[in-house]
């Protein structure tokens, strides 16, 4: 598993630092429901616990998201992956990489960790079946050197799930 993969760990810029501190304060004031921030002193890597919504395939199951912020956040998207074990989902690879456009091409600084989390939970909630993506084995093999999902050229073909 490449769950420890991380982008080049350059320290956060002043702007990124200020913004993340504000996001964290806002999160602590009103955390998105279903998510729990695991308190740490590392502003650059957040570990977030997500609980599957009631009435969905993942009801009551708990998974962990790891969010790594690049030096120039929010000009660049954060890297968001599931820690092992990743939920079985047609858009989530067994190495934790998530095929979700807002994490890559469709990122915008108008988004926040909180809004990204909500998108991921809604992606889980609308899953029709607990299964891996068709190309899971090939993709995971190609990522074996700890490649970040942000280096993948994603092909977003399914906007139903």
């Amino acid at each position: 598993m490449t769950s420890s993969s991380s982008p080049s760990r350059k320290a956060l810029s002043k702007i990124a630092c200020n913004r993340l501190q504000k996001e964290l304060a806002e999160w602590q004031m009103s955390p998105p429901s279903g998510f729990k921030y695991r308190v740490s002193d590392n502003l650059q890597r957040w570990v977030i616990e997500v609980t599957g919504a009631a009435g969905t395939l993942y009801a009551g199951e708990t998974y962990q998201l790891q969010v790594d912020f690049p030096e120039h956040y929010p000009m660049e998207a954060p890297q968001v992956i599931f820690l092992n074990p990743a939920p079985m989902h047609p858009h989530i690879y067994s190495n934790g990489h998530i095929c979700l456009d807002i994490l890559y091409d469709s990122w915008s600084p108008a988004m926040t960790v909180s809004s990204v989390c909500i998108s991921i939970l809604s992606m889980l909630s609308s899953s029709p079946a607990k299964q891996r993506p068709q190309d899971n084995d090939r993709y995971v093999r190609n990522c074996r050197n700890g490649r970040s999902p942000k280096e993948t050229r994603w092909w977003f073909h399914d906007d139903k799930v």
Binding site: K14, I15, N18, R19, K22, E23, E26, P74, M75, P109, A110
Partner: peptide, 19 residues
């Protein structure tokens, strides 16, 4: 509160004054 912040703070870096 957030409403006020939106009026003054930058929508990208979330602060009023650049570093």
């Amino acid at each position: 509160n957030i409403e006020d912040d939106k009026q003054i703070d930058c929508g990208i870096c979330y602060v009023k004054h650049l570093p």
